[in-house]
């Protein structure tokens, strides 16, 4: 007869955390940063159909790294939560804070329950405000921890190095084109500092744009608009005006 091993709770939790962290570290990173008109989401993602970032509600979007099926489940849960809240209360009553709390509870319960494997995901829930100072970015990790981030955040494989670099290169109030190039630049540097060029086809880019006239502020940036924003040098000053003119083109994604 075998005696069951005693595993200390510390050890059990550390093992689960290790397991989740390894799964997350395998994936490519996602960067979320504020820019003059809202919040920008950039990820390296060659797939056109399997998104890492999506709309949740009017002013709220979601980004994730890790196991697709797990964060997709959470995304759908979030959309259902937001829609049912907006339907039975008012559109204004759906907030990123509320959603982030529900996600934190969900991830935390799953992490500490013995019966389920921990989710190998990290999430960002962001809400664009009426003014730059009202933007909110929440980062959630596999164990349900929640952090209120300011201005920029990275998650995924190289999160720490990317955050380090963003600290140097990100400024508040950057126009969209510049903010995008900052994000692509940091995504393209791997641990050794070597630089890769990431093309438009390998990128998934979206914004929560407070200047949009519709209630729904989320918009994917694709095709020619993305190529143009990437291609412009730091000299181009007309970025904002042009990107606004293009607004109607890709809003129907």
């Amino acid at each position: 007869m075998t005696t069951p091993f005693y595993v200390s709770p510390q050890q059990a939790m550390a093992d689960r955390a290790d397991y989740a962290r390894k799964g997350i570290a395998r994936g490519r990173s996602v960067v979320v940063l504020t820019y003059a008109d809202g919040i920008l989401f950039v990820a390296e993602n060659p797939s056109r159909a399997l998104h890492k970032m999506s709309e949740i509600y009017d002013r709220i979007a979601f980004a994730a790294v890790g196991k697709y099926n797990e964060f997709e489940n959470l995304r759908i849960g979030g959309v259902r939560y937001a829609d049912i809240r907006g339907y039975s209360y008012a559109r204004h009553d759906v907030t990123a804070r509320g959603l982030a709390n529900v996600y934190a509870q969900t991830l935390g319960t799953i992490f500490s329950s013995g019966g389920e494997k921990p989710y190998e995901v990290e999430l960002i829930v962001a809400e664009v405000g009426a003014a730059p100072g009202d933007d909110q970015i929440y980062r959630l990790t596999y164990d349900g921890s929640i952090a209120d981030e300011q201005h920029y955040v990275a998650m995924g494989g190289n999160a720490d190095q990317i955050t380090e670099q963003l600290k140097r290169t990100h400024r508040e109030g950057l126009p969209l084109g510049e903010a995008l190039r900052v994000a692509v630049d940091v995504l393209g540097r791997d641990g050794s500092g070597e630089k890769r060029t990431i093309t438009a086809a390998q990128l998934e880019v979206a914004v929560l744009d407070r200047t949009r006239t519709q209630d729904r502020k989320f918009k994917r940036i694709v095709g020619t608009q993305l190529a143009r924003l990437l291609g412009e040098g730091a000299t181009a000053a007309g970025v904002e005006a042009e990107s606004d003119a293009e607004d109607g083109d890709s809003s129907a994604e």
């Binding site: 529900v102 996600y103 509870q105 935390g108």
Partner: peptide, 8 residues
């Protein structure tokens, strides 16, 4: 307080 199973 976690998302009910129906949501996921």
């Amino acid at each position: 307080g976690r998302l009910p199973a129906a949501f996921l």
